[in-house]
Each structure stands twice: as C-alpha cells, then as structure tokens.
Nucleic acid binder design. Structure first.
Lengths: 195, 195
DNA sequence: CGCGGGTTTGATGATGCTCAAGCCCGGTGG
DNA sequence: CCACCGGGCTTGAGCATCATCAAACCCGCG
C-alpha cells in the first residue's frame, strides 16, 4: 500500500500522468505528522506551503480584534488546506491551522512547488483547477452568508458536511457558521423539537 | 493604441511572453460591448466563459428564495469576472452579471481557453495565479463576514473599494455588504456625525 | 412639472449576542 | 473506586444589531 496512492488518484481526476511522472511528482511532497493540538501553520509566521491530508482532521482559524477565535475551514482525508492569503501576498499568516486529531499530511512547500511546476508543467493545470474549485466553493459560502439566516446555514452545513459533526466540537461549527455556541445550541434544540 | 495592451500587461505581471505569444494569445479573446443594464451572464443559462473588463463597470448578483437580489461582486477596468461555480461544475448559472455603465470587455470562452492552454501552456500558470489571488480575496471576505459588524465592514469597504462609491448605487453596496439599504443609510449618517 | 428611482427617517420587531449559571461526562489523581 | 475537576454543551434573562414596513424626501430626466 502506497502512501501516495490517494494523492495520485486525486491528480488523475483532472490530468493524465505518465508512470514516470507519477514517481517524480511524489518527490516534491514530504510526509509530516502531527499530534492533536499541534499547529500545521502558526499565526504570525509565514505559511510555507500547502497540506494534503492523508489521515486526520484539522481546522484553520484566526483571531478577531478581541482575540476571539473564528474557525474558517475544516479539512479531513483527501482535502487540501493552506493559508492562501499568506502564500499569495507573501505576508505573515493571520490564520493558524491546528490538528483536531492525530494527523498525517503530505506537505508541498512553495519552493518545491515551483520546482514541480518546472519539472511537470502539467501540474500547473491541476493546481489551476484545484484553485478554481476552491474559488467556487468560497463563492458559495459568501452567497450563503448573504442570503441565509443561521438556521438555514446550519441545515446546509449538515447536508454538505454532516459527516464532520462527529469529528469536530460544536462550538467550532458554530464559529464556522458565524454564530455563538449558545445560539447553535438553541437552533439544534428547536430543530429536534419540530420534527 | 492597442485594445489588448492592458490585458497583455496584466499577463506580464506573472508570466513572461515572447512577442509571438503576445500576438497569438490575443486571438483567443473577443471584444464584446454592452449597454447599461445589459447582461453579460444570465441566470439560468450556462456561463460560457470569463470576462476581462476594458472599460465600464458591472456587478454580479443572485436571487434569494424570496427573489431579493444579492450583489456578490463588482468589476471595473482591468478586473476579471465570471461565475466560477457555473464554469467549474458545468451547471446553469445561479448568478447574473449585469452592466452598470456602458461596458467593453474581452471575453474568453471556455472552449477558447482550452485551446489557449494547449497553444501556450504558460497561460495555465497565469490563470492558476489569478485564481489563487481570487481565492485569497474571497477568503478575506469570509473572514470579515465572520468577525466584523456592518459598520466595520462598510469602513473596510471604503478603504479598499472607496473609488466604487461614485460608480455604483448605495443599495448595491449595502447588498454587497450583506445589509439593507436603510441600515447602510443609518451607518453613513452616524459616521458623518461623529467626525 | 410631474414622475420614478434612489435615499433617508422613524416605529416596531426579529435575529442573534452577552453574561451568568447549571449540567453532563470523560479523565485524573487520591 | 470515588471525588473532583474541567471542557463542552445547554438554558435563560436582558440587550445590541439589524430587518421590515411605511412614509417622506430628493433630484435628475422626460
């Protein structure tokens, strides 16, 4: 069983790789493991690259002006996560990424990614598509924040990401939805009654 | 004066093109002009490609479940705009894009973009970076919607996009910020008093 | 001059927050 | 084995933010 199997399969959803390229591309990624509560990316430092989660669960969050933590994303097996703002604008990360479970990830540093793009230009296509898909899903999220109330957003969350409810605490889901844990509790209470 | 001048300059911020490639790449774009209120993309149809605005001003919006319109983006000279969700998932567009002024744009259809990527693979890199920058700015927007109240969001908007205030009606800015026009009016009133 | 789209103002009400308290439950040390 | 934590979830009272609805106003334009 190959550690890189799911990674390669993910690539092959969008581009075609020769056997040689498959071997080569692995070399740009390194395996990194984290304990629960370890940080993959730390607020205040430069975000050095992108993570592909092999096993485990992480979340990214930032601190508001009163130091409240706001969860912005979750990621589990076969998801990609990074702080794109830090990477693109070469600024210190405002967000942290932290493991919620013991986690194994493949890490692609910015430098390695540049080498990879030179060695296998096709990979540009993959990351273009990946980024466009992210753009589309962020778009959806903005759209929902403009047009839905908290209950509707929670129902939508359960529909799409319900499988996360067993792996992350509710107060993080509340934060992700842009509400307080207390209010999410009330929403859940109402929903369970009216059914 | 060349219609494509600013387009090529935009490319050259991120990639290097030979003179031949500069000539070639133009061929994949077509010029399209729109009157005020014309639709660049129409809700319910497939979004056929991406627009680069040469002159004018447009906004994209979608309709909520009570048919209220929510403005999601603005675009002016040298900005790109499309419905990425429709393109990526090949679904009918849920958003419309409409001209707020007489507008001239360069249009890159999906088919032409595929041909372009074959002819000039470097363009993959440009669109990867463009999309990553969009991803970063959408990220910022989500972050703000999680951590700022309406007044703070409006102040932030003025800081970054204040130049739009003279070109788009206030009720669209309100919609973009996720509040009602009435409430934006109150915010502006308060801000003008307390200074 | 009147019309109509956009903005403002005000009263009332819903949505969601804050703060404080209590509860539930798994983990830890005596 | 039990007592006691402590983190997360719940409940409730009071409050801030923002929406809704209705009316008035403003002003460019036919």
């Amino acid at each position: 069983m190959d550690t890189y199997e799911t990674l390669i399969k993910t690539f092959e959803k969008y581009i075609v790789l020769t056997p040689e390229e498959k071997e080569l591309v692995k070399k740009f990624f390194i395996i990194r493991t984290f304990n629960k509560k370890d940080f993959l990316v730390n607020e205040g430092e430069l975000c050095e690259g992108t993570f592909y989660i092999l096993k485990g669960c992480v979340h990214s969050f930032f601190k508001g002006k009163h130091l409240e933590k706001h969860t912005t994303h979750f990621a589990i097996e076969d998801w990609w996560i990074t702080d794109m703002t830090s990477i693109i604008f070469q600024k210190l990360a405002l967000t942290s990424i932290q493991a919620l479970e013991p986690t194994t990830a493949l890490f692609l540093s910015i430098k390695q990614s540049e080498k990879m793009f030179e060695a296998i230009p096709k990979m540009e296509k993959f990351f273009r598509i990946l980024s466009q898909r992210n753009q589309a899903s962020f778009q959806q999220r903005i759209l929902h924040s403009l047009s839905m109330n908290a209950t509707e957003r929670y129902l939508n969350f359960r529909e799409k990401y319900g499988f996360l409810e067993s792996r992350v605490p509710q107060y993080m889901i509340a934060s992700f939805l842009g509400i307080t844990p207390e209010f999410l509790s009330i929403i859940r209470n109402k929903l369970s009654k009216q059914k």
